[in-house]
Amino acid sequence: MNFDDQLRRYFGSDKLDSVPPSAIEAGIERMRVDFGLETDRGRRFALWSLLFLLGAAPDLDAFDDPADRDAARDFMDMMDKDR
C-alpha cells in the first residue's frame, strides 16, 4: 500500500494541507473502520502507521500478534527520534 495512494483514497488528495478539516476527520474515521476490518497484516500496519502520523492511531493492543505490536513500538520510537 503506497503512502500517496492511502492519502488519495481516504482524503481525496495526496496533499493534506489542501484537505479541509472535516474531510480529514471523515478520512480518519474511514481508516479506523478499515483498520478494524482488515485481515492482511501488512495493510493493517500501513493503516495504523498513517493513523499514528495523524495522531489518531488505536492503542497497540489493537494488534493481536506480539510481533506487530513490537513493529508498531519500533515505528513510534523511530518517529520520536526524528522530532
Rank of each mutant, 00 (worst) to 15 (best):
R41S: 14
D65L: 12
S18C: 13
A56M: 06
P21I: 07
M78Q: 14
L60H: 01
A46S: 14
K15H: 11
P21T: 09
L60W: 01
P21E: 06
A67C: 06
M79A: 07
M78D: 13
R8L: 10
R30L: 14
R32Q: 15
R44Y: 01
T39D: 09
K15S: 03
A62D: 07
D65I: 11
D82Y: 05
E29Q: 14
R30N: 13
K81V: 01
R8I: 09
L51C: 11
L37G: 07
P20Q: 12
S22W: 04
V19D: 00
Q6H: 07
G55T: 09
A67F: 09
D61F: 12
D59P: 15
P66G: 01
I28P: 00
D40E: 15
R69D: 07
D17N: 13
L37V: 06
R30M: 08
A56W: 06
A71F: 05
D64G: 15
R69F: 09
R30S: 13
F35R: 09
D68W: 14
D40Y: 05
P20S: 09
A72D: 00
D59L: 12
F52S: 10
A46I: 05
G42N: 12
S13P: 04
S22T: 10
E38V: 09
E25Y: 01
D64I: 06
M31K: 06
R9A: 11
F63G: 02
D82W: 01
A56F: 12
R73H: 11
D77H: 06
G27D: 01
L51Q: 05
G42R: 14
G12Y: 07
G27W: 10
A71K: 14
F11G: 00
L54A: 07
A46G: 08
Q6D: 02
E29Y: 08
D17T: 09
D4P: 00
L37S: 09
R83Q: 08
A71V: 06
D82R: 11
P20G: 01
R9Q: 10
M31T: 06
A72E: 03
K81L: 04
D70H: 12
R30V: 09
V33P: 01
A57F: 09
R73Q: 15
L51H: 10
I24H: 05
D82A: 10
P66K: 08
G12V: 05
L53P: 00
G55H: 07
M79G: 00
D65T: 08
D74Q: 15
F3N: 03
L54D: 02
D40S: 08
A62F: 06
G27E: 02
A26L: 04
M1R: 04
R69E: 08
E25G: 03
D70T: 13
D61M: 10
L54H: 07
M78L: 15
G12A: 02
T39G: 08
G36N: 10
A62E: 11
F75E: 02
A67G: 07
R44T: 03
D74T: 13
A23W: 01
G27A: 13
